[in-house]
Write a protein that binds this DNA or RNA. Sequence first.
RNA 1: CGGAAUAUAGCUCAGUCUGGUAGAGCGCUUGCUUCGGGAGCAAGAGGUCGUGAGUUCGAAUCUCGCUAUUCCGACCA
Length: 564
Amino acid sequence: MKLSKFFYTTLRETPSDATMPSHIFLMRGGYIKPLSTGIYSMLPMGFRVLKKIEKLIREEMIAIEGLEVDLPIVQTADLWSESGRYTAIGEELLRFKDRNNHNMVLAMTHEEAMTDLVRYVVSSYKQLPVMLFQFKTKYRDEARARGGLIRVREFLMKDAYSFHTSQEDLDKHYDLEYKAYQNIFRKVGIEPVVVQSDTGIMGGKVAHEFMLDTPNGEDYLIICKHCGYQANREIATFKRTAHTGNADLGKEKVATPNAESIDAISKLLNVEASATAKCVFFNFNGKLITALVPGNLEVSEIKLHNLLKAKDLIPADNESIEKCGMVPGFASPIGAHDTRVIIDSGLEDATDLVMGANEKGFHFKHCTPKRDFTDYEVADIAEASEGCKCPKCGKDLSETRGIELGNIFKLGTKFSSSMGATFLTPESKSEPIIMGCYGIGVGRLMASVVENSHDDFGPIWPKSIAPFQVEVVAIAKDPELLEVADKLEKELESAGFEVLVDDREERAGVKFKDADLWGIPLRIAVGKKGLANGQVEWKPRISKDMVLVNIADVLSKVKEFYQA
RNA sequence: CGGAAUAUAGCUCAGUCUGGUAGAGCGCUUGCUUCGGGAGCAAGAGGUCGUGAGUUCGAAUCUCGCUAUUCCGACCA
């Protein structure tokens, strides 16, 4: 491919709205072009990378006996009502009406459509197991798109769904998917951090997320460097050490004017934050939820959400807190009424705590939940953070950030039960199909590779997914140089390599800068000096320096380069 | 959905406070000179200053509404 015939653009300056390296370089290199918030066009350079990633993923899916299909993105509301998600999902699901006034949606994922397809085809255990996958555009009406391709509204996703007759069979396939994912990410140079994750509104029991460990990530991960425990902060657990003091002291009211925060109260009374209890309130189904965690920790809304099986969990207003006998800023369950009290397991055996006296300007000292609380539940509702103790080995946990590259879920029968996707067992018994689902965001992976592999000048694409394999740069418009470049192009292309030839009338500096932005693994520069000796310049994108090689040796060296 | 900011040439931005005929650099076109890491000179093309109202003799500039975009947070199969 001659650059003079290619459709491309490069930007000399960083677009003002780009902050992450992947966003900057994908824009500057002319891979993508924004059309609206979180909606991007792919230029040929970007499309080539995307297709390479797609091919690589497809190979791994086929290797575990996946069958490729293609399902619609425009779907009926009826289909989504069958699973209950038409109402369960919020505004992220884009709804609209067609000309016949039918309620329609743009698919944000394809569990319903896949389940519908499988119930149409499958009736017997003899037809199972089966795994179907596709590469398909999804639309999610994200509240906030960000970071170039990292979080977008419209995006290409590989989504796979497996269907089984037993949990054991699902478990077996799940492991295969797990390994296939490892292969995929390693092939693009990423060593993923695999964490246990929240199953959210997907239902199901077990789920893992494959994350890229990066400071630019939007998810928070809790990892144990000692034993390997890894979980998304949303669901990460940790070992509690309950605060204990003199359990014999009776509770004592003390004046604490203006000390409405944990910080203020611990300073005023000279106690550790962990020796206090933090009260957080939510409205759920018309009732007030009082959540209590050790003062040094935060309430995990996701954990609480899952515990209550809540669709909506709304922070409570002061009025409803007061109605239940508590005073915001000085609140505790002591003396409260008409509220469901949930205390974190870290408080269960705690003694001698400071907490609100439900009277403005006063706290109680020496509180002990087991003695002073009347009606309460104990649960894991505190959010894990840096320095908490590992639930497995008890050592310090660390916190890091990650970008979610892909996830795998054991769905179970959530969709098959609600949608009537059943099969007959050998005993002629009708049972719901057991399902799993497995996703990878293709565009996000493309951006993540850049996050993971770039220098100050541009992306450094792994050989597996680079837009081209070799870039031949003719340094000057000298016809003799162009002729050599053309010859190299033909020679390499006929050997099956993808070659980009920079035949523009540009100065060397411009061509080299652009080459860096395109990040092609191998750059071969044809210059006057080298040519005099029958040589060209050989420079892998990852190395700083170039070496001279004989023109006659180029093909064999390229072959060697791509075999290594 | 809360908080903040921005919107002027293809890109990056100045001009707005203090109202008076639209600016720079880069990019683009043409010519000459250069030619190994984003060259120089010269001549050009290119903008209803996001949008709608208002104030004013006069609005990119002041006022109000709207829209779009970005950042922080909430949300996120």
